[in-house]
Simulated scan of single mutants.
Amino acid sequence: MNEIISTTGAPGAIGPYSQAVKAGGFLYVSGQLPLDPATGAFAGDDIASQTRQSLTNIKAIVDAAGMTLTDVVRVGVFLKDMNDFAAMNAVYGEFFTENCPARAAVEVARLPKDALVEIECVAHKA
């Protein structure tokens, strides 16, 4: 049975989807834009502040599911501009410091609300 995970610590979904779904021992977290849940606005105009907010949103959702970032096994990063990779990666390294999850990072043509980054993940608690 699937369990819908929802928290006010991350922005609500902007479409017909859930913040996350727990199924079969895994947590599937929907792509998180860099929106501050308190204001609904972007956390900043640069890739570092937007990456930090997207990962803060992911952490809030993972926490709400009774897991931690150490339970994250895969991350997908969608960048508006691959030239932002190094700055995104520096902030990412603040959240994932050891036993890092598998990851893909790709440049995309456009993201919702014209964000610079969107990040999704899958977690599993052994």
Rank of each mutant, 00 (worst) to 15 (best):
M1H: 15
M1Y: 10
E3W: 02
E3R: 02
I4H: 09
I4K: 06
I5E: 01
I5G: 01
T7K: 08
T8W: 15
T8C: 14
T8S: 15
A10S: 15
G12M: 15
A13L: 11
I14Y: 13
I14W: 13
G15W: 08
P16H: 12
P16C: 10
P16S: 14
S18V: 00
Q19Y: 06
Q19H: 09
A20Q: 02
A20N: 01
A20I: 00
V21S: 00
K22F: 08
K22L: 13
K22H: 11
G24K: 03
G24A: 03
G24H: 04
F26S: 10
F26N: 07
F26R: 09
L27Q: 00
Y28F: 15
S30T: 04
Q32D: 12
P34M: 04
L35G: 05
D36F: 14
P37Q: 07
A38W: 08
T39W: 05
G40P: 02
G40H: 02
A41P: 01
A41F: 13
F42N: 07
A43G: 07
A43H: 07
A43T: 09
A43N: 08
G44K: 07
D45K: 13
D45Q: 10
D46I: 03
I47C: 10
I47L: 11
A48G: 09
Q50S: 03
T51K: 02
R52W: 00
Q53R: 09
Q53L: 07
S54W: 07
S54M: 01
S54A: 15
L55D: 01
L55V: 02
T56Q: 12
N57C: 02
N57W: 06
I58L: 14
K59E: 12
K59I: 06
I61S: 01
V62Q: 00
V62K: 02
V62E: 08
V62H: 03
A65F: 06
M67G: 03
T68E: 08
L69M: 10
L69F: 04
T70R: 13
V72P: 00
V73H: 09
G76C: 09
G76S: 13
G76D: 13
V77P: 00
L79Q: 07
L79P: 02
D81Q: 08
M82P: 01
N83S: 15
F85V: 08
A86I: 06
A86F: 01
A86R: 09
M88L: 09
M88Y: 07
M88C: 09
N89L: 04
N89V: 01
N89R: 10
A90L: 12
V91G: 05
Y92S: 06
G93M: 03
F95T: 06
F96G: 06
F96N: 08
F96V: 04
T97K: 12
T97V: 10
T97I: 11
T97S: 11
E98F: 12
C100D: 07
C100Y: 03
P101D: 01
A102E: 14
A102R: 12
R103T: 04
R103G: 02
A104P: 09
V106F: 11
E107T: 04
V108E: 11
A109V: 12
R110F: 13
R110A: 15
L111A: 08
P112F: 15
P112H: 14
K113F: 14
D114C: 01
A115F: 05
V117I: 14
V117C: 08
V117H: 03
V117Y: 05
I119C: 08
I119E: 07
E120C: 14
C121F: 00
A123K: 03
H124R: 14
K125C: 04
K125G: 00
A126R: 11
